[in-house]
Design a protein around this nucleic acid. Structure first.
Lengths: 141, 141
DNA sequence: CTCCTTAGTAAGGTAACCTGAATATAATGC
DNA sequence: GCATTATATTCAGGTTACCTTACTAAGGAG
């Protein structure tokens, strides 16, 4: 129940997530201080060829309205652009700008750095064991 | 990057946390449907001899104002009571009611159930290995 | 007793979502 | 080929979980 004594697994998982994710979010913030954790859902579910808002929202499991606001903000930062979808005049395709590509790369390298550091801390075997365990929780719990 | 293929560790940790915590929050919701995840911070950091708002807020790493609102809501649900602190007339002690004790027990058993189920899934060794790994991340990453 | 600090609270703001409703276009039935 | 229904997006406004600023009441130091 306390924080300095080992808490239960659920809290442990959350703490570990917060600790690791901080590095990634900080990297984003250094790139553009308007970037917030919520925007990661956009980068995570984007598709390079372009993607419709409704599909992006569905993949991120949120409403198109909520996703639309995140896309608005990233558009204002210059990371994304909305272009008309040639296949459907109601729709727009959300695509990366060059700046957006850069931001994505920065995110990838931050994640890579975290994974490398974690593999160093736990050893390659320990790191793989953690991934396997977490994957079993996702698929079998 | 996708969700059906194994994502990076950071996302894996978050997904695992969400999956396990759902069981605990659902148990709370069944007890009183006004109970929300935010209230768990109160139960997590309570002290059954009574605790001051400022200390509770500090332990939960939030402002006294934010914690005060959560305590207001739990008081309205009948889980907590504020009594004058005999040692300082500015302060109040937040204490559990009988209903609050019951809620706490329900939370404990939900966490226990999750941990048992996880130990069954991973085996006792796998479960302990996970706890050890998560603890190393907390202390050494 | 005055001065500064601490405990709590009130008022109002922001971020990250949500629901409901409006608009434009597309697809379908007859 | 036109009316009906469905889909893509957007607008307006609400809720939750926080925050900051500013106030009041009470305690402690000199």
């Amino acid at each position: 129940m306390a924080e300095t004594h080992p808490p239960h697994v659920v809290a442990q998982l959350y703490e570990a997530y917060l600790r690791l994710s901080d590095f990634v979010f900080d990297a984003g913030k250094r790139f553009d201080d308007r970037l917030r954790p919520a925007h990661s859902a956009v980068f995570f579910h984007m598709e390079h060829e372009g993607i419709r808002l409704s599909r992006l929202a569905e993949k991120a499991q949120m409403t198109p309205q909520a996703m639309g606001e995140l896309v608005d903000q990233l558009e204002e930062m210059g990371c994304l652009r909305r272009i008309p979808d040639p296949a459907d005049r109601r729709a727009k395709l959300i695509v990366f700008t060059e700046l957006g590509d850069k931001a994505l790369l920065i995110g990838y390298s931050a994640i890579d750095a975290v994974e490398h550091r974690l593999a160093t801390l736990l050893g390659d075997d320990g790191f793989e064991a953690l991934r396997t365990t977490l994957n079993r929780i996702r698929t079998e719990f």
